[in-house]
Nucleic acid binder design. Structure first.
Length: 324
DNA sequence: AACCCCGGCAACCGCCAAAAA
DNA sequence: GTTTTTGGCGGTTGCCGGGGT
């Protein structure tokens, strides 16, 4: 149990001098005190501020409260698709450099971005039983999640040029091109972009596509990094079959496939939930027990399944045509 | 209605680097 | 040049509200 809960479950003040600092949630009075003090003396010198303002808080606590909550330009509310897109893209470049990422999202704090990543993005990784920092998951984000956001961005700004082109942090061209020239359904984008039926990966293409300076979408290949094709992460997919034989189970008799399908559909629905949009009519979620029909109509899941098989087969590619 | 579970988020902690003494 | 203080960062915790049973 943390010291925070200790103080909050008993008394907010301790027994001795050093414990006379308040902890836990801020009250309206404390917020007012802090705002008033900063309006008169400006921010900074947080320890001094804590002493002189009359707040029984540490300087660090005051700073945190101000920067993450009280500061006037702190933007509150749900992250827009554009902001989500930026986070995904910038995190792929910089990793957990939350403050650096936050600098590119005006009004958003590093804490908020960190929370978004942990509660939303990592949740998807857990559903798919993948390490959120793995190359594989990054590819899934790039191939699956980002096109959804692009779709949302474009539909929400239909009167203006492509929403993506308005985001300076994203190299929009390839996705933009894919979006406008391959149809609006994300399933189409994905099925065209994912070369899962390729047994050999073009490493020249891989190298160009993993150009970190340009970030996402610099290639039409979704399984793009050479690292991801080393199959060194097979152990991560131990719950999924590693033999090519399983892939023939396009009928309902493959429990492994069904497990994968369930997880994938959960991932899918979570993506929709996250963006607060409804699934397009062109790609409805499959009904329970009707998954195979859905698969045959929309080649989304079997593409992903093919990807698993590619990983699991150590390079022996699965023939996704067997599905259709 | 009561209980449980879970996700979101505010706030804390430890560590480290830069600035100040 | 050394020590102390301050500020910033990333990781973690636990409260709280909503939904499900």
């Amino acid at each position: 149990m943390s010291s925070f809960s200790k103080s909050s479950t008993s008394s907010i003040y301790g027994e001795n001098d050093s414990d006379q600092l308040r902890r836990g949630p801020w009250t309206l009075e404390e917020d007012t005190l802090l705002i008033q003090y900063i309006s008169r003396h400006s921010e900074g010198r947080w320890n001094l501020l804590a002493k002189r303002s009359g707040l029984k808080r540490t300087g660090k606590s005051c700073r945190l409260r101000w920067l993450n909550y009280l500061k006037p330009d702190v933007k509150r509310g749900n992250l827009t698709p554009q902001e989500q897109m930026s986070i995904l893209e910038l995190h792929s470049k910089w990793g957990n450099r939350w403050s650096k990422i936050a600098q590119h999202l005006p009004g958003r704090t590093d804490n908020e971005i960190k929370n978004y990543w942990r509660t939303r993005v990592q949740k998807q990784a857990r559903h798919l039983k993948i390490d959120a920092n793995s190359t594989t998951f990054q590819e899934i984000i790039r191939c699956f999640w980002m096109p959804r956001l692009l779709q949302k961005m474009d539909t929400s700004s239909s009167s203006s040029p492509s929403a993506l082109s308005q985001n300076p942090t994203i190299n929009s061209q390839p996705f933009d091109h894919a979006f406008h020239h391959q149809g609006s359904a994300s399933a189409q984008i994905i099925s065209h972009q994912v070369p899962y039926d390729r047994g050999v990966i073009d490493h020249q293409e891989l190298n160009s596509s993993s150009d970190s300076e340009h970030g996402i979408g610099t290639s039409t290949s979704c399984i793009s990094s050479s690292e991801s094709m080393n199959f060194s992460q097979v152990s991560q997919f131990s719950e999924y079959p590693t033999g090519g034989d399983h892939f023939h189970a396009s009928n309902n008799d493959s429990s492994e496939y069904n497990t994968f399908a369930k997880d994938f559909c959960q991932f899918d629905s979570n993506c929709y939930d996250m963006e607060n949009i409804s699934q397009p009519e062109t790609m409805p979620a499959p009904l329970a027990g009707d998954f195979n029909n859905w698969v045959q109509e929309y080649d989304l899941v079997d593409n992903m399944w093919g990807a698993w098989m590619n990983f699991g087969n150590s390079g022996t590619h699965a023939d996704i045509n067997e599905f259709n």
